[in-house]
Amino acid sequence: MDNRFQQLLHKLEHLPPEKITEVEDFIDFLSQKDREHQMRKDFARGAEASFHKVWDNEEDADYDTL
């Protein structure tokens, strides 16, 4: 294990149980936030393929340079 992880474990060992619960909740929050961010990126990538035909046309070519 790297040193930062060891330091974090050491700090956790000295927290009261109710604070451990808060830390766990915060970790869950961060994980959920990351999953939602990845889901939005995946959705955007999927939408690009769907809209490619609409976006790629001569009429809107001026917007390609923006």
Score class of each variant (00 low, 15 high):
Asn3Lys: 14
Gln7Asn: 07
Glu22Asp: 06
Asp34Ala: 13
Lys33Phe: 08
Lys33Glu: 14
Phe26Gln: 14
Thr65Cys: 07
Glu13Val: 04
Glu58Asp: 12
Gln32Pro: 05
Lys33Gln: 14
Gln38Glu: 11
Phe5Val: 09
Arg35Lys: 12
Ala61Gly: 03
Leu30Thr: 06
Glu24Cys: 10
His52Pro: 03
Asp60Pro: 01
Val54Lys: 07
Asn3Arg: 14
Val23Asp: 03
Asp2Val: 00
Glu48Trp: 12
Pro16His: 04
Pro17Cys: 00
Lys53Trp: 11
Tyr63Arg: 13
Arg35Tyr: 08
Met1Ser: 05
Thr21Asp: 15
Gln38Cys: 07
Glu58Cys: 05
Glu58Val: 02
His37Val: 12
Glu36Trp: 06
Glu13Asn: 15
Leu66Val: 08
Gly46Tyr: 05
His10Tyr: 08
Ala47Arg: 13
Lys41Arg: 12
Met1Phe: 07
Phe51Gly: 07
Arg4Ala: 08
Arg35Glu: 12
Thr65Gly: 02
Val23Arg: 00
Asn3Trp: 11
Asp34Leu: 10
Phe5Trp: 12
Ser50Ile: 13
Pro16Cys: 01
Asp25Cys: 03
Ala44Gly: 01
Asn3Tyr: 13
Asp25Trp: 00
Leu8Asp: 01
Pro17Gly: 06
Gln38Thr: 10
Ile20Pro: 05
Asp64Phe: 15
Lys19Ser: 06
Val23Leu: 00
Arg4His: 09
Pro17Glu: 01
Ser31Thr: 15
Leu8Thr: 01
Phe29Arg: 07
Leu15Gln: 04
Asn57Gln: 03
Asp2Cys: 06
Trp55Ala: 14
Gly46Cys: 00
Val23Phe: 02
Leu66Tyr: 09
Thr21Tyr: 10
Ala61Ser: 10
Gln32Val: 06
Asp56Val: 05
Asn57Met: 03
Ile27Arg: 06
Glu13Leu: 11
Val54Asp: 11
Asp28Val: 06
Ala44Val: 02
Thr65Val: 07
Phe51Asn: 03
Arg40Trp: 04
Leu66Asn: 03
Asp28Thr: 09
Arg4Thr: 01
Glu58Tyr: 06
Leu8Ile: 04
Asn57Trp: 00
Ala49Leu: 09
Ser31Asp: 15
Glu18Gln: 09
Ala49Ile: 08
His14Leu: 03
Ala49Tyr: 09
Ser31Lys: 15
Arg35Gly: 02
His37Phe: 13
His10Gly: 07
Pro17Asp: 02
His52Val: 00
Lys19His: 00
Lys11His: 10
Gln7Lys: 05
Ala61Pro: 04
Met1Ile: 00
Asp34Trp: 06
Leu30Ile: 01
Leu30Tyr: 02
Asp64Tyr: 15
Gly46Ala: 02
Asp56Glu: 12
Lys41Val: 10
Ile27Cys: 03
Leu66Arg: 06
Phe29Ser: 02
Gly46Glu: 00
Asp28Arg: 14
Leu30Trp: 05
Pro16Tyr: 02
Asp25Pro: 01
Trp55Arg: 14
Ala49Lys: 12
Ala44Thr: 05
Glu36Val: 05
